[in-house]
Design a protein around this nucleic acid. Structure first.
Length: 830
RNA sequence: GCGAAAGUGGCGGAAUUGGCAGACGCGCUGGACUUAGGAUCCAGUAGGUUCACUCCUGUAGGGGUUCGAGUCCCCUCUUUCGCACCA
């Protein structure tokens, strides 16, 4: 049998949709707006199966919302700056702009071949000056508001290549290109003060529907801790060392202080004591260790005593200062007051180096003895050895000790976040230049607005230089200082590509604005994004950065509202042979091949049917054929019964005149529509919506001979067939339009309205009750819908098999679950 | 290591609020048909047991709550994602 002519159909409808500009979203409309957005792709050159899957979901939502009567915008663009393009250029001796633009052109063709309703008039590509111009502008606004600063931090560095390496470019501690050892080098970097927004970023009350797990992950990522910052005076010095602790109740038990080797004081001591090779060697070693391993509980704790002491302000104790591998500079103040008796890591360390311990929190029966402790006591308890706080409950003491410390001026109550400020500097070429100028006289000066954008120079030979390529373009690098007019140099760092992707969704609302990032009125109309779709891997970084930018733009008055993404759908990956598809593994599937061979509709239906959107799907060639066969069956059904359908559409059915089979078909049409609406509109579970349509199709095709049907029956038959294109439209739009037109409807499906069902056709003539005895099914009962509980109970007890299992038992309880079951609990009668 | 999830037939999955486990599809088995097609149509398909009805077992493993648990609670195992310069 011939396959349905999917190629002709898909080409035909893609042309019609384009000509009628259906995907073009209108700014300001009488209809309510709906903004559907899938995370934009990195333009690798070809659409892969993951893209097809992701965008099929977005397109299904887009079409559903159009049927529902919304003014829908579904834009698309490219996250086109970044390392892969630069690396490709290095190895293939080309230029990132050339390869990137070629890739974009190719992907555009593939997008169109899938038949997505994308508003290409709003296309954004982050590597184009009309976009990155406004990224620089936003950077400047942040700088003006004091949210940008510079700070030294350690970066992966290859001495051989004289360059910073991304984490991905470090392979087991070595440079991926030359293989030499990667070290940590301190460099001056640009930072965004995202921690200023930490508290607000913890608040998710303004989003409408986000997966709970993403919210939890972000909250944990931000990691709020309440405690105190307390200053310990350095002995024989004016210097104070601030520490942060969440356990001020243990402060009388401090027996040493732990500093990370990166701590500024340690670095200062290293300079002062150039002869202390033991400390220097230790610091060098630890700084180059993997931070993940350092923070692991199982890593062997190591340290070096500095020979210095500080003073515990509360009791005047002299406290040894150690440099250790298990404390990180990134959290709190870096310095940790170590209480070995009540912190496991401090305990391990103190045991190893023979540092004294002191119990300051006793358990309830006061049985803790320092010589017998095998592990730290970390639970709350009663205060001990803590001067005037003795015998207090430790939880109460926490707050009282902080108040005492504040009163004495030794420190203050404080909150620390695990979240760190966002380092945005990249020493790379293919990114958005940071619009700053270094002037020997005036210091660091922003590029004036009228000189924006700072164009990324094109005549750069990537790969010819090892350090930042921008240093090798003197005509770009050397500028006049905008303040004093003297000789100055541009900043050569470019921005993290996450900066580009933190506001692109706002640019889509006004993609071609030459005077500002976007017109606030248009942004106000379209934002927030009603439905955002993307991978779970972005839970903590991209999604957090975008929320931060949104709140910042709100504070500038550019936009209203607090959250960029009202609803979030985190979709799963398409796997093959249990692993993520990748070129290196050789387990890729080319969506273009599938489209050419079986059509975009088949691919879309397969991807949406394979699993609910948020789960991973295992690619399966044979299951793909199942989707293809399904569409063929639909096509054959409608094409083969066209006359009967067209005739039936002219009649209204009288239910009483229907045969039992047609009554069932009527029920199926309405039942299926109800299920479909619930799955599509409420649950966003398209796999079961498609399953419902398949089930309905099975019911329709069960009727073989339409010539025997009466006019009433033909009406039911025609309706049953007629709803199929509508139900299929969000998933397989081309074939749906074709069949819809074939049946004689003139409007296109996006304006056909949502299919609806009538409750009156869903009333069941009888209900089957399941009868359980002690939790096991022992019988069934067919009754009228409104049978009362007493009748149900007595009828249930009459069922033969039920009686068999009740023999010799005494009935303790009978539970009736309306419309579902009768459950009998019985016990042996002694 | 830390944080977050997931685990159901041969496979993808369904079971929406604690109420008939396995919808729908793939695969497989048997049959029909034939223009021999990546066809189509019909029947069957969790495992065990039985001629059959029935019954027993079964949702990673172990324990618990309940008349009733894939679903709730505790423990264990495995897999996946993220961990701040991949995007």
């Amino acid at each position: 049998m011939m396959d349905y002519p999917f190629q002709d159909i898909e080409k035909k409808w893609q042309k019609i949709w384009q000509e009628r500009k259906i995907a073009k979203a209108k700014d300001f409309s009488d209809k309510p707006k709906y903004y559907v957005l899938s995370m934009f792709p990195y333009p690798s050159g070809v659409l892969h199966i993951g893209h097809a899957s992701n965008y099929s979901i977005g397109d299904a939502i887009t079409r559903l919302k159009m049927m529902e009567g919304y003014n829908v915008m579904q834009p698309m663009g490219y996250d086109s700056f970044g390392m892969p393009a630069e690396n490709y250029a290095i190895t293939h001796n080309s230029h990132p702009r050339i390869t990137t633009e070629a890739n974009i052109a190719n992907m555009r063709k593939q997008f169109d071949g899938m038949g997505f309703f994308l508003d290409w008039d709003r296309e954004v590509s982050t590597c184009r000056p009309d976009y990155y111009h406004w990224g620089q502008y936003i950077f400047k606004k942040m700088y003006e508001k004091g949210l940008v600063y510079r700070k030294k931090s350690y970066q992966n560095w290859c001495e051989q290549c004289n360059t910073v390496l991304a984490n991905e470019q470090v392979e087991e501690g070595s440079c991926w290109r030359c293989g030499s050892e990667v070290i940590q080098k301190e460099l001056e970097q640009w930072y965004f003060r995202i921690t200023d927004y930490a508290e607000e970023l913890l608040d998710f009350s303004k989003v409408i529907e986000w997966p709970e797990r993403v919210i939890t992950m972000q909250k944990n990522w931000i990691g709020k801790s309440e405690g105190a910052t307390i200053n310990f005076a350095l002995e024989h010095s004016e210097h104070k060392i601030p520490i942060f602790t969440t356990r001020p109740d243990t402060i009388y038990g401090v027996t040493f202080m732990a500093l990370p080797p990166e701590h500024p004081l340690v670095q200062q001591w290293l300079k002062e004591e150039s002869g202390n090779s033991k400390l220097a060697d230790f610091c060098k070693k630890v700084i180059n260790e993997d931070k993940m391993l350092r923070s692991s509980a199982e890593t062997v704790k190591e340290g070096v005593f500095t020979g210095r002491y500080c003073i515990n302000p509360l009791n005047g104790d002299q406290v040894q200062i150690w440099v250790t591998n298990y404390v990180l500079m990134d959290y709190g103040t870096g310095a940790v007051m170590a209480v070995p008796a009540h912190d496991q890591r401090d305990f391990d360390f103190a045991k190893k180096y023979g540092i004294p311990m002191k119990i300051v929190i006793q358990n309830r029966d006061r049985s803790l003895k320092i010589d017998e402790m095998q592990e730290a006591y970390v639970e709350p308890g009663l205060m001990q050895n803590s001067a005037k706080f003795d015998d207090l409950d430790s939880e109460t003491a926490k707050s009282e000790i902080i108040s005492w410390i504040e009163k004495q001026g030794w420190g203050k109550r404080s909150i620390t976040y695990r979240l760190r400020d966002w380092g945005i500097s990249r020493q790379r070429y293919w990114g958005n230049p940071i619009p700053m100028i270094h002037c020997p006289n005036c210091g660091i000066v922003p590029v004036p607005d009228e000189d924006l954008p700072v164009f990324l120079p094109e005549n750069v030979q990537v790969g010819k230089t090892t350090s930042n390529p921008l240093l090798s373009v003197p005509e770009w690098l050397n500028v006049k200082c905008p303040v004093c007019g003297g000789e100055a140099q541009r900043e050569t760092d470019t921005m993290d590509t996450f900066v580009d992707s933190s506001w692109y969704f706002a640019r889509y609302t006004d993609a071609h604005n030459l005077d500002q990032p976007f017109d606030p009125a248009k942004a106000d109309y379209w934002l927030p994004v009603d439905q955002y779709i993307g991978g779970i891997e972005h839970a903590c970084m991209h999604l957090l950065y975008a929320r931060f930018f949104y709140k910042f733009m709100r504070d500038l008055g550019w936009i209203k509202g607090d959250e960029p993404f009202a609803r979030l759908l985190t979709q799963g990956m398409v796997l093959k042979d249990g692993a993520k598809m990748s070129k290196s593994k050789g387990n890729t599937v080319d969506p273009q091949y599938i489209v050419d061979r079986f059509g975009a509709d088949t691919l879309r239906v397969y991807l949406l049917f394979a699993s609910p959107p948020e789960k991973d799907v295992e690619w399966n060639d044979e299951a793909l054929m199942g989707a293809f066969r399904f569409l063929n069956r639909v096509y054959r059904l409608i094409e083969g019964n066209l006359d009967a359908i067209k005739k039936g559409l002219q009649f209204e059915a009288e239910v009483e005149k229907l045969s039992p089979a047609l009554k069932e078909l009527l029920y199926s049409s309405h039942h299926c529509t109800r299920k479909w609406r619930e799955d599509c509109l409420t649950r966003m579970q398209y796999n079961t919506a498609i399953a419902a349509v398949m089930e309905h199709l099975n019911h329709v095709t069960a009727i073989k001979d339409t010539s025997a049907l009466s006019n009433d029956e033909l009406a039911v038959y025609a309706e049953a067939c007629g709803i199929i294109p509508q139900l299929l439209y969000p998933f397989a739009p081309h074939i749906a339009e074709e069949l819809w037109q074939m049946m004689g409807f003139e409007q296109l499906l996006h304006e056909s309205g949502l299919p609806s069902y009538e409750e009156k056709y869903l009333v069941q003539e009888s209900i089957t009750y399941v009868i359980q005895v002690n939790g096991k099914i022992r019988g069934k009962l067919e009754v009228a819908p409104d049978t009362d509980h007493e009748t149900l109970q007595s009828e249930a007890l009459k069922v033969e098999n039920v009686q068999r299992f009740l023999e010799g038992l005494e009935i303790k309880k009978v539970i009736v679950v309306p419309n579902k079951m009768v459950s009998i609990a019985a016990k042996a009668n002694k």
